[in-house]
Design a protein around this nucleic acid. Structure first.
Lengths: 193, 193
DNA sequence: CGAGGCCTTGACCGCGGTCAATGCCCGTGG
DNA sequence: CCACGGGCATTGACCGCGGTCAAGGCCTCG
C-alpha cells in the first residue's frame, strides 16, 4: 500500500523511525492525489497541513506587485508547506501549487503535534528537517548575494538537473531572482557550447 | 547575579521556562566576558557552543576569495553560533567575531542536548528559535532577491536603527551584498535629504 | 608627526532589467 | 482539419544600477 511505502521512505531518507512511530504516522496520515495546477494553500489561509511528495512536484509562490515570484520548489521525497503560516499560525503569504498530477502524503498540524509528543524519534526528525531547511536557506543567501545569474542557474541545475523538463522557465527565473529574458539568454549561450 | 538575569531574559524573550529548567540552565551555563575583535569560532573548527549575548555584539563572517563577507549580525539578546557547524557537526565555514567588549552566556552543545532531553520546555524553546531563524533567513532571501541596494539598507536600519554606530560600514555592506562604495553613496544621498 | 585603517568620491563600464516585437506550440471551435 | 488565439519563450535595442579601480580625505594611535 502506498501509504506504508511513503512512510518507509520518510524514515529512510530523513531519520530512522521506530515501528510504533511508523504505525502511528500511518494511522494519522492520508494519501491524496492532486491534479496539476491545483492549489494546496491559498494566500491568506492558515496552512494546516504538511505535505510529503510521493510523486510529482509543487512550488510555493507569492505575488509581489501582481507578479508571480517562486519562493521554493519541492520534488519527489521533499516536504512542502507554507512555512511562515504553518509554524507561526499566521495567514500564508504564499500560494502552494501542484505542478504535475501528484500523489501526496498529508499530515495535519494537529497530528504532527500529537506525534511529536508521543514519539521522541518523530520530534527529532522534525527538528532535523527544520534545521536542514534553515541551512539550505542560508546556502541560498550566499548564492543570491554573490553569484551571477549564470552561476545561480548552474547551481540549480547541479541540484536539479531535470528541473527544466517539469517547470516553466518563468518560475525558475523568479526563483533565481532574475528575469525570464535573462534566463533565456543564459540558456542560449549554454546550448551553443 | 548576571547569570540568573540572563536566563530570566531568555525565558521572557523566547519561551517561558519552568523554574526547574532555569535552575538547570544556570548550573550548566557560564558567563564570559570577551574583548572586542576576539574570535569565538575559527574557520575549520567545529562549533561546540551556543552563545547568548548579554551585552555587546558579534558577527559571523566567512572568507570568499580572501574577502571578508558578513553573514550574520547578533546584538544584545540574540543567540549566535556557526549554525552549519553547530547543528551538523561539520567544520565551520565561518569565523565568529565579537565586535565590542561583550558579556556572553555560553552553553555547550553537550549541555544543550542534556537540557533538551530533560526539559520539554527547553526543547520547545530550541525548536522555536530554529524556526524563527529559518523564517528570518527566508525574509532575507526575499530582500536580497528583489530590493535595490538602498531598500536593503533601509530595511536593515528599520530593524537595527543604530547599527552604524557599532558596526563598520564594510561589514554592513557585505551583509547586504553590496560594495562599500555603493553603501557610502547611498548614505550620502540620505544625509542630503 | 607619520602610518595605516576606514570611508568618501570620481570615472568608467558591464550585467542584467525593461519594453516591445516576434516565434512557437497547443488546445479549441468553426 | 485548418485557423485562430493565448500562453510561453526568444530575441533585440536600450539604459541604469551598482561593481571595479584608483585617488584622496580623515581619524586614531604609536
Amino acid at each position: 500500500m502506498e501509504l506504508v511505502t511513503a512512510v518507509e521512505k520518510i524514515s529512510e531518507l530523513y531519520f530512522p523511525l521506530s515501528q510504533a512511530c511508523k504505525n502511528d504516522i500511518e494511522a494519522a496520515a492520508q494519501i491524496i492525489a492532486i491534479e496539476k495546477t491545483n492549489l494546496l494553500v491559498k494566500e491568506g489561509q492558515i496552512a494546516q497541513n504538511m505535505y510529503f511528495i510521493c510523486k510529482g512536484s509543487a512550488r510555493a509562490y507569492y505575488l509581489k506587485n501582481g507578479k508571480d515570484i517562486t519562493d521554493w520548489f519541492a520534488f519527489e521525497n521533499d516536504f512542502i508547506t507554507s512555512i511562515n503560516s504553518f509554524f507561526m499560525d499566521i495567514p500564508s503569504p504564499h500560494f502552494i501549487e501542484v505542478n504535475e498530477n501528484s500523489v501526496l502524503l498529508k499530515l495535519t498540524k494537529a497530528n504532527i503535534t500529537k506525534l511529536s509528543e508521543k514519539h521522541l524519534d518523530f520530534e527529532r526528525m522534525g527538528n532535523l528537517i527544520i534545521t536542514k531547511t534553515m541551512l539550505q536557506l542560508q546556502q541560498r543567501i550566499v548564492s543570491l548575494q554573490f553569484e551571477t545569474a549564470q552561476q545561480k542557474y548552474e547551481n540549480l541545475l547541479d541540484i536539479h538537473p531535470d528541473i527544466t523538463l517539469k517547470t516553466q522557465l518563468s518560475h525558475i527565473a523568479s526563483y533565481l531572482g532574475i528575469t525570464l529574458e535573462t534566463l533565456s539568454r543564459i540558456r542560449k549561450l549554454k546550448s551553443r557550447i
